[in-house]
């Protein structure tokens, strides 16, 4: 049982127009085996939260804390966070020239575990995980994300999630750009990871359709860098019907 705690988090980013505050006091507690959906309109700070948890250098934490089982995450480098059990499934995974998927997965697994995986079980694990995600074997010999379709990139992210077995996964708009078949396959992968490893999931999404396949325990609505409302799964249903207009009007008045 692990816990990822975010307390009064304020984050800004440097732009050409100067420092721009994005997160303005975010509180969130994510336990193992829980799924929290973070929803909100464009520009509300959802992705900033994802990248701040992972440690992207573009974002500056001005105040507040992120801890993993009491350990200060903000003090850790990007790779240390990953080794501590935090995983970010990226919205736009980048191409890595010259590095095959199979080499990349083995290197990452070795880094996370602190030792190389036993060859025979590892090959079997990779094959099973790829089969489950309906990925062809030849995929393993392609360079990471090079020439991948949108759906292939997202499946590759979930493949890593299943193989690296983190404690917490932040899924940054993993549903965007996926057709319904791919959305089901990717969602099944997330659910499988949760069943197998008690994964805690922070599911960041603009739309509600992925919530048909991944059931959230809690829903947080992000507006203007803060949690504007939170509730159970019923909140997602309400957003499906009403959209974000209600929050945006309130934000405009504020």
């Amino acid at each position: 049982m692990s816990v990822l705690e975010i307390r009064d988090l304020h984050v800004s980013v440097e732009t050409d127009q100067g420092t721009k505050p994005i997160l303005r006091g975010v509180d969130l507690t994510l336990n193992s085996n829980e799924t929290h959906a973070i929803m909100g309109p464009n520009g509300s700070g959802k992705s900033t939260l994802a990248y701040t948890i992972a440690g992207h250098p573009k974002y500056t934490v001005d105040s507040g804390s992120i801890t993993l089982d009491g350990e200060d995450v903000l003090e850790m480098s990007v790779d240390e966070r990953a080794r501590a059990g935090i995983f970010l499934a990226m919205q736009y995974p980048v191409e890595i020239p010259g590095v095959t998927v199979s080499n990349f997965l083995r290197t990452a697994k070795t880094a996370i575990d602190g030792e190389a995986p036993a060859i025979r079980t590892w090959i079997k694990d990779v094959r099973t995980a790829m089969d489950n995600l309906r990925m062809d074997k030849v995929f393993a010999e392609r360079n990471v994300n090079e020439g991948f379709s949108g759906g292939e990139k997202k499946r590759h992210e979930i493949l890593q999630l299943e193989l690296l077995k983190p404690k917490f996964a932040v899924l940054d708009e993993t549903d965007s750009g996926l057709d319904v078949d791919a959305l089901k396959i990717v969602s099944e992968g997330v659910n499988r990871a949760q069943e197998n490893t008690d994964l805690g999931v922070l599911l960041i999404t603009h739309y509600t359709r992925i919530l048909r396949y991944i059931k959230p325990d809690h829903v947080h609505v992000f507006v203007n860098g803060k949690v504007a409302e939170q509730g159970g799964p019923e909140l997602a249903d309400r957003l499906e019907n009403e959209g974000y207009d209600r929050y945006l009007q309130t934000a405009d008045q504020a």
Binding site: A82, F87, I96, T107, I112
Partner: peptide, 12 residues
């Protein structure tokens, strides 16, 4: 960005 991606997978 490529460096970030690899480091986010635990690679130094």
């Amino acid at each position: 960005e490529q460096l970030f991606y690899l480091m986010a997978r635990g690679i130094a």
